[in-house]
Design a protein around this nucleic acid. Structure first.
Length: 564
RNA sequence: UGGCGAGUGGCCUAACGGUAAGGCACCUGACUCUGGAUCAGGGGAUUGAAGGUUCGAAUCCUUCCUCGCCAGCCA
């Protein structure tokens, strides 16, 4: 994926090193990984890290990566999520080919294996209630106690388990448990629940089943059925590995997968918890899973983030076992890098200030040819109409310019990008004393942006012709949470950023922007990257600000070095 | 407190016993028709702590400290 030179081999993370060693020692004919989401919500940037890891390893080692839905809990799963997950993985640029699977594809096989476990005396039906089971489980420091049903005769276990499947019992009446060790120091080994009764329709199997395997009983076996060689998951499953291995060892599974764990992604100013994201959606803090402020793949996409930027980010943050919190700035850096290379430049004025060029012919219209992307000559150019009356950014004018303010001010000459040099001659104010218009003159000799005498203004401004400008709504986005560690003080929702979205309605943009389609992210010169929102329509353009440009001037202000 | 895992500059990551590397961020300067981009340079860590082994330790050993995960019939 990344460029790799002979003398500076790309550093592999610890998982890739394990895979490489397995390949080197001939342990597997083909490397098989899998990305196993539960369809109980939308994918987020944390999943993207896992997707890039799993699909990336498969590609790098000439193997394959499966997309498998871990759909073992019908009460939380929905078809909407299944569809969204498939779309998001594809959008990220990965392809599972023929290898789309579901844990539910294996329900019958898993059931048979559960029966085999019972026959082997390694599983039993427990009549204890959930509360009683918890009480018998012991604590971190005290061993658990055997359930009174632990030594139930095999025949009785078989009969009861069959009747559980047949639907004879209500939810929670009984469970199937592995018979391991109630005194195990690892609590996950204290006779974990393998099957529970859930009378609920499953998005794929309908009501064919009323007992469902737990994660632990489904995951490793699913890996084994699919021939997964490296089952990569996040750190919280580390304590489940002994159980994963126990099941693989005690069941006649067709292959022997191994589980490896890495640290999940954490980002500053961001929450990556499906539980919390679901609340943000359900409680209306955002407009949906794909709200541009959401860290979901669909939200980032709507915001204008390119898939390549997300992939680059995943590659640069690496994979390790230490818990960590990556600064969002790192993600933004990766995204800006891609956008700088690929986004077409356009002119858009968010907060318009009228400029009239007194010495410019009233009816004249000039089509100024401006490059689409100075970084990429092959991107060509477009023409932008230039007229006597223009709009510029209000922030680009100061009546009393502070030190280091290079933009327009009384008597000052600046360049209008791709057009002419203009000089501010007069300020027009309204009754309240607000500047509402600037009377300027232009220098006809500077057409295209260069002066024959070689003089060079310190500032170049973007502009839009008043006669041809197209109105637009622009939505500015900022972090969803105000602090880098949302919820650290207790109430996560108290840390929501009330200004995470600012809607600007009076924006005026160059005509070419009316043709921008959803999926294209453009750069509004000097302002940032913007993407048309799906709400955008022919008569009503709507743009989302993906990211601002790096803004040294603003930074000076924030540091108080800008005497305003 | 039991088990498991992890601690490297502000953040992420590397170094696999041979004398701390890279990216982000930060600071300078150059360049510039985006205060963008680019280019050049800079500051900043002795690797959680203390002992020990060794010619040599971020890497090995010991003890301690800190953080994370596990007591769902969630995943």
């Amino acid at each position: 994926m990344n460029a790799q030179t002979p003398d500076s081999p790309e550093r592999a993370d610890f998982i890739r090193e394990i895979v490489a060693a397995d390949v080197r020692e001939g342990r597997h004919a083909t490397i098989v990984t899998r990305f196993p989401p539960e369809p109980n919500g939308y994918l987020h940037i944390g999943h993207a890290k896992s997707i890039c890891l799993n699909f990336g390893i498969a590609r790098e080692f000439g193997g394959r990566c499966h997309l498998r839905f871990d759909d073992t809990n019908p009460t939380k799963e929905e078809q909407e999520y299944i569809d969204a997950i498939e779309a998001d993985v594809r959008w990220l640029g990965f392809d599972w080919g023929e290898h789309l699977y579901h844990a539910s594809d294996y329900f019958e096989q898993l059931y048979e294996w559960a029966v085999a476990l019972i026959r082997a005396g390694k599983a039993y039906v427990d009549d204890l209630t959930a509360d009683e089971i918890r009480e018998h489980r012991g604590t971190l420091t005290e061993p658990g106690q055997d359930s009174p049903w632990r030594d139930r005769p095999t025949a009785e276990n078989l009969d009861l388990f069959e009747r559980m499947r047949a639907g004879e019992f209500p939810n929670g009446a009984r469970v199937l448990r592995a018979r391991i060790d109630m005194a195990a120091p690892n609590i996950n080994l204290r006779d974990p629940v393998l099957y529970r009764i859930v009378h609920a329709a499953h998005p794929r199997t309908g009501d064919a089943w009323c007992i469902y395997p737990t994660y632990d009983f489904a995951h490793g076996q699913s890996d084994a059925i699919e021939g997964v060689t490296h089952s990569i998951c996040t750190l919280e499953f580390e304590v489940h590995r002994p159980l994963y291995d126990w099941l693989i060892e005690n069941l006649p599974v067709p292959s022997r997968p191994h589980q490896y764990e890495f640290a999940r992604l954490n980002l500053t100013y961001t929450v990556l918890s499906k539980r919390v994201l679901l609340r943000l959606v359900n409680e209306g803090h955002v407009r949906g899973w794909d709200d541009p402020r959401m860290p979901t793949i669909s939200g980032l996409r709507r915001r204008g983030f390119p898939a390549e930027g997300i992939r680059d980010f995943a590659a640069v943050i690496g994979v390790a076992k230490a818990d960590s919190v990556v600064e969002v700035g790192q993600l933004e850096f990766a995204v800006r890098g891609v956008l700088n290379r690929t986004a077409s430049r356009r002119f858009a004025v968010l907060n318009p200030l009228k400029v009239v060029l007194d010495n410019y012919p009233a009816q004249q219209v000039e089509e100024m040819e401006v490059a689409n992307n100075p970084e990429d000559p092959s991107a060509g150019g477009r023409s932008v109409p230039f007229t006597r009356e223009l709009w510029i950014e209000h922030d680009d004018f100061r009546e009393d310019p502070p030190a280091k303010f290079f933009r327009l001010a009384p008597g000052r000459e600046v360049r209008l990008r791709g057009a002419y040099f203009v000089t501010c001659r007069e300020i027009v104010k309204d009754a309240a004393g607000q500047v509402v218009e600037l009377r300027c003159t232009y220098d006809p000799a500077t057409r295209g942006g260069d002066a024959p005498d070689g003089r060079r203004p310190k500032a170049t401004l973007h502009w839009v012709s008043a006669a041809y400008a197209v109105p637009a709504e622009v939505r500015l986005y900022d972090h969803l949470f105000v602090r880098p560690d949302p919820g650290a003080d207790g109430d996560l929702f108290a840390d929501l950023n009330p200004a995470s979205e600012t809607v600007l309605r009076g924006c005026l943009v160059e005509p070419a922007l009316a043709a921008t389609t959803v999926g294209q992210t453009v750069q509004f010169e000097r302002l940032g990257y913007f993407a048309p929102d799906p709400d955008s329509m022919a008569g009503h353009l709507v743009f989302n600000r993906t990211l601002t440009l790096k803004d040294t001037w603003a930074k000076l202000g924030a540091q108080g070095r800008q005497d305003t």
